[in-house]
């Protein structure tokens, strides 16, 4: 209620109101830039949308709009606005650089690769950086290696870490789920240890071994008509077969974990992009 009174008082007692429209191009642009600078990218994008609508031919504005969406993490909208501004291969250098990054951030790595190979808007160094990033994130180590070899003069960040990561990627040995299962068939838990989860492997061995030992004790003391022994037989069988299943799964998980680690390190070497 008091707010209403306040409002009416302000409306009537505003003595020297300038005839300004807060939603015109200049005001909206100023407000959008303020929001962008204060890190409120989602709200800034909404303002830029209004300004871009009022000034459809202003490409600089379009670029700011795309950048606001990108900073807000709305990559799909950023991509759509960039493509609505110009077809990818005719984009200005600024927009093309932003577009390449948006595709990479969206994980549209195939699309990014095609665009970066075909575009001639970008300076060679920028194009190579984004293309190498794309190959690294896609874990295409030989392709990344050949790109890096074609540019032996590039050094420092992030090129040095790119080279290290590529070497590690090329040297990475894939864990075989079949071999992991095979190993665990012979010794319970060995397949998990092979996949790098040795603690899980040890517990698989313990769980299976203790259950089997209890079953053996039950049978050897009381013969085959003993419930105690049969319960432990069931448990031993469950743990043994579960260990085979888990070993195959552990090998697959290790492969995913290795890829995940490398990808994360690629991202970490490019703080400006991620």
């Amino acid at each position: 209620m008091m707010r209403l009174i306040w409002l009416m008082l302000i409306l009537f007692s505003w003595p020297a109101l300038p005839a300004q429209d807060l939603y015109d191009v200049d005001h909206s642009l100023a407000f959008a830039q303020y929001l962008y600078k204060s890190g409120e990218y989602r709200l800034a994008a909404e303002e830029y949308e209004r300004v871009a609508f009022l000034k459809p031919g202003d490409l600089g504005l379009r670029l700011q709009l795309v950048a606001a969406y990108q900073r807000a993490g709305a990559f799909a909208q950023a991509q759509a606005r960039a493509e609505a501004t110009a077809p990818p291969l005719t984009m200005s250098p600024g927009l093309a650089a932003l577009y390449g990054r948006i595709l990479i951030q969206q994980d549209a790595l195939g699309e990014a690769r095609r665009f970066l190979r075909q575009t001639d808007s970008l300076p060679q160094a920028e194009r190579l950086l984004l293309l190498t990033t794309t190959e690294l994130l896609d874990q295409r180590w030989p392709q990344a290696d050949s790109l890096l070899r074609s540019q032996p003069t590039h050094s420092g960040a992030p090129w040095d870490s790119f080279r290290t990561l590529t070497d590690e990627g090329l040297a990475l040995k894939r864990k075989s789920p079949v071999l992991a299962i095979g190993l665990s068939t012979v010794v319970p838990g060995l397949g998990k240890a092979y996949a790098g989860y040795w603690k899980d492997g040890l517990f698989s061995l313990l769980f299976t071994g203790i259950s089997a030992w209890q079953a053996y004790r039950g049978f050897s003391r009381n013969g085959p008509r003993n419930a105690y022994a049969w319960v432990y037989t069931g448990l031993a069988a469950g743990f043994y077969l579960g260990n085979l299943y888990g070993s195959g799964k552990a090998a697959s998980r290790r492969n995913r974990q290795n890829q995940h680690d490398l990808r994360h390190r690629v991202e970490r070497s490019l703080p400006s992009l991620f």
């Binding site: 409002l7 302000i10 409306l11 009537f12 505003w14 109101l17 005839a19 429209d21 939603y23």
Partner: peptide, 23 residues
């Protein structure tokens, strides 16, 4: 009522002025 009075009071201005945005 407040909005109406605001519009009358600032009728010469285009919509979306400061007081109207406030209203």
């Amino acid at each position: 009522l407040g909005l109406l009075l605001a519009l009358i009071g600032t009728g010469r201005l285009p919509a979306q002025t400061l007081p109207q945005t406030l209203a």
